[in-house]
Design a protein around this nucleic acid. Structure first.
Lengths: 220, 220
DNA sequence: TAGATTGTTAATCGATTAACAATC
DNA sequence: TAGATTGTTAATCGATTAACAATC
């Protein structure tokens, strides 16, 4: 069985968006299983607790070559390694947070991101009362320092956790500092130049969708 | 032009999941426009800043009848009203938060949810050092009180912002208290009985997907 | 009228599911 | 062998896009 392209981060092209969004879910689950001491697992045992069909998961894997051999279960460790490569989580990825309010601090202290290969390098705000205070072992710096900081540290990912009214300005500053990916928690549609990825994390969308499904379900 | 079904919350059935997830995005945008004093707007002006095609948005609207008349632009106020009805955001919806850490507090203080018709009624934790402290004008109560509180207040929606190891237990308690929709921030796959909706809000999925898109894009 | 807009259907595109050969 | 599993393709299903009639 000849090994198919693509092994790792060289993938892309025809990999569906929907698959890309499921890979992190698989990875999370696999890490939880590894922590419980699970070494081998079948596609059914892996997929079904996530409410995903085993065949769909195998189909997703198939975009990236072979993860096992027919008849043999998956090795948890192998899957974690392969999926981490595919998701480009190999070397530590530095990022910053703009906004040191409760949400910014919650993100900063969410240690799980570090297990996944992300490394918080700076957190910024404009509130003089909290400047210099420490969050997750980092001093809160003034927002004015951010663009130069981003350039000198070579950081390409930034999270925006500021009020909507300030978000576009912060976005522009991040882009000026060389950021290529913006994780946006502010409830505004940011405009960013071609080549900069904006990933919206609109929490109220999830809450509204949940509410809809609950109320729709209660009528049936 | 006879008015089509369904006017409001009676929709469902054949409305695609993808459409349901876009309605809150439209609603957010419309509220921002209203705040800026915009009264009328065309589908193009409304959709394109959200990176959504005007035709797709009209197609989405079409599941719920007519929002304007051919040749006439949309009235911002009318759209907000109609979309709010469709999303069942009419009367205030009570909810609770389990976990009063940074993330739980961030959710509690995210005032936007109130504009959207949600009403935080309780926040629970087990850490004795923070019990009784006030978050968003509510005392932090002990988790043991939660099921009875949920029943007596008739609350159907709960957010889980506790460590993954505690999440399934909290989920079970919420279900016991009558919750029908769980907004899950803990990185575990919860199992809940038929009829209970679990909406996962796995932040690390968004960060990993962003990282992938950035690194994939940088190679091209 | 001429240009622009919404409502609506048909055509295209993409994602999921089903099925099964190859393998253990 | 018999039963179970992965890899892989084809068939189905659902969502997006294109196109245009009706209307202003």
């Amino acid at each position: 069985m000849p090994d198919k392209t693509p092994r790792n981060c060289d993938a892309l092209a025809k990999v569906p968006e929907a698959t890309i969004l499921r890979l992190p879910v698989y990875l999370n689950r696999l890490k939880a299983l590894r922590a419980r001491g699970v070494v081998q697992i079948s596609s059914r045992e892996l997929a079904e607790p996530m409410n995903i069909k085993a065949g769909q998961m195998r189909h997703d894997f198939h975009y990236f070559g072979n993860f096992s051999r027919p008849g043999r279960p998956y090795e948890v460790e192998v899957l974690i390694k392969r999926l981490s490569e595919i998701m480009c989580l190999g070397n530590s990825t530095p990022y910053v947070i703009a906004g040191a309010g409760l949400l910014g601090q919650a993100i900063a202290n969410y240690s799980r991101f570090e297990d996944d290969g992300f490394n918080l390098r700076g957190i910024f705000d404009i509130n003089p009362r909290i400047l210099g205070m420490t969050v997750h072992d980092l001093p809160i710096r003034h927002m004015e320092e951010m663009p130069a900081f981003l350039s000198s540290e070579g950081i390409h990912i930034g999270a925006i956790a500021v009020p909507p009214s300030a978000a576009q300005d912060i976005c522009d500053q991040m882009v000026a500092g060389g950021v290529r990916g913006i994780w946006n928690f502010a409830l505004v549609d940011l405009s960013a130049p071609e080549g900069v990825v904006v990933q919206d994390e609109f929490l109220s969308v999830g809450l509204m969708a949940l509410n809809y499904k609950v109320k729709a379900g209660m009528r049936e």
